[in-house]
Design a protein around this nucleic acid. Structure first.
Lengths: 210, 210, 210, 210
DNA sequence: TATGAATGAGACTTCATTCAT
DNA sequence: AATGAATGAAGTCTCATTCAT
């Protein structure tokens, strides 16, 4: 720390440069989308010349995909795993939803950029889009698992529908907050969402249980 | 000269040219977003040279905004107004949701392009974004009106929350179908959405009524 | 005057339209030069569509040339012809210089635009440039005549040199005022200019007379 | 590799490329002015693609300003500093004027382009115009200093007026030669100019001295 | 007398990418 | 591990001009 601080830093530090580039890219791409993210803008924001970006990443596509991957991991770390014990199914579901909402507020880049990529349709799909869809498939399966655990009597089809509804609703609420701004209480909306889904599941399970 | 109208073509027809340009733009912008929509691409698709596009529209921003406006009107026409009589609140709400879902399948451009613009944050906001948000505010108010009519005992706050949830959920379901493709049964999801909201509203109203 | 004022004006008034176009052009060309003067800008300033400009003028070159011609005539009217009698040669010369200075202040467009055209060298010389140089040749000859009248003993060469010096100096002072702004007392500078030239002529004449 | 320096060409030589661009620009801008100088023309003349020009200069404005700066320096080098001793004030003044005239003939770009920029009035003033005016202010002050040295009894106001007249007259003579062509003997005109100013200064000083 | 519409050429500028060092 | 310099393609938009009405 008090060592050769002037000598260190600068002059070949691959890992840090890579991070700097990713940091800059996530910021720009999260605001401007794929086409709106220019290598020159990334270069300006991270301070490294454009050619250095190409040392770390094959091309723009590769860079964006890397951003998606890293921001997914960041987000994963932000989602606290729910204590599997807790209380009633409703309580547990609401708790989980609140956690997810909070994680999205803390690390919104993944979903924000992902949704932008997902909405766009370009001749040659960016790799980042595939990464996003694939990664979000994991979330889908995980939620389906939770629902199955909580309501074992539901059919596979019913679970799938509820899961789709849960994920899509979350997307919509997230978009709403991104568009409408900080005044939106995302946690409350997510909890409402969870409650409605729980009720629907419970009612369906009850009906099915007969 | 007085022959069939099919012969009449080429040379100075402002109204038709304008439509051709808008048609081309809506198609491209709906798939590629703001940055991805190049004037050259629009020109190629509509057959008019790029400079002609600038005779009809001040700049790209103006063009995109016009597209948003026109596609909103197209969509409005596609939404059938619900028969105000019908049966129970639940039946009516589900019917309306189905209608909206069908209208979005028939005319998806408005919401698709609008959501893309809404998610982007660029230094100088495109006018189209403002148009979209403003126009969607109208939808919000209309839905709030319907909920108030059906459940007069709800407080203003409760109506607002439910409306926000309804609109955001619809956005999410729409995005889901756009991303996942034609296999998604948007009508069914919208009807489920409507049912859950109805139940929530009914339960809240009942509790409040006590 | 109180007649059908609504009917009149508008609907085909060629003369007035021509004036409107020239008025707009002189303003723009006087500030921006040849290349900087776009037909679109002229159209916007005069309110007539670009195609109307081409009804009145063959092309841009023709328009600029017409502007030069008209502004020369305007300027000519602004120069008061000096009473040929008056007092001493010095008094008469100073009076004339003051008049010219005042005329340039009242109608600066001719010289301003002309100098801009004169300085530019383009592959195909604009006709306006030729008009300017030719018209200014008239001024040159007129001044040479005055000098010859006042100092008959000067040789043709001496008159030519003094005339060139007089005209060029006037250009320089005019440019100075255009660049430096209204704080410059152009009349005083022109009078100084005249005095110096007079003295030089007088001294040369005296030396020659011996 | 270690061969003659003529072989060394092509591929990445920033300094030389910058010079090539400036050389090309000064030639074009000196003839065509700001608007008449197209990046494409500069590119064609210097052999580098247009995009390379933008690596060396932020935009066209920056390029033109750089040209003004460099051509000023070139011109400064061309003006020989007058031996401060020499003979009578008249001789010294005439000598200086001749030197300036010769320097303008050798390096006319600075004044030529500068005057064109100075005459134009565009909505957003090119930076080059400001550079020119500011740099020419230096010349003004220097000349004022010389006049004060030679005629210490002149008032500040008298010095300023004579200086303004000197500079403006020089501009006018320069323009005259640019317009009229090589047949004009600029050195002779400048010497005449100097003589007239000297006489005026001497006479004013004499009158004041009484 | 006037104009709405069209058009190809060309303006400035940014793009993603490469390459030699 | 990094970067200065270069580059062709493409971006948005304006240009002067024409033509049918």
């Amino acid at each position: 720390m008090t060592g050769p601080q002037t000598t260190r830093r600068k002059r070949a530090n691959g890992v840090e440069s890579r991070q700097r580039i990713l940091d800059a890219t996530v910021e720009i791409a999260g605001e401007r989308g794929y086409d709106g993210t220019s290598i020159a803008a990334v270069s300006a924001k991270c301070g490294l010349p454009a050619s250095s970006i190409y040392w770390h990443f094959k091309d723009k596509d590769d860079l964006i995909a890397a951003v998606i991957e890293r921001s997914f991991e960041t987000w994963l770390k932000a989602v606290e795993l729910p204590g599997d014990d807790a209380g009633t199914p409703l309580e547990r579901v609401v708790l989980m939803a609140g956690n997810v909402a909070r994680s999205l507020l803390a690390a919104p880049d993944f979903l924000r950029l992902g949704l932008m990529l997902a909405l766009e349709r370009r001749p040659t799909e960016p790799r980042g889009r595939a990464v996003f869809l694939q990664v979000r498939d994991i979330s889908h399966r995980r939620i389906a698992g939770i629902i199955t655990d909580l309501f074992p009597s539901l059919t596979e089809d019913e679970v799938q529908t509820l899961t789709t509804y849960a994920v899509a609703g979350a997307d919509g609420l997230f978009v709403h907050r991104e568009v409408q701004g900080e005044s939106v209480d995302l946690v409350a909306l997510f909890e409402l969402h969870a409650r409605l889904i729980h009720d629907a599941a419970a009612r369906t399970a009850a009906r099915a249980g007969r």
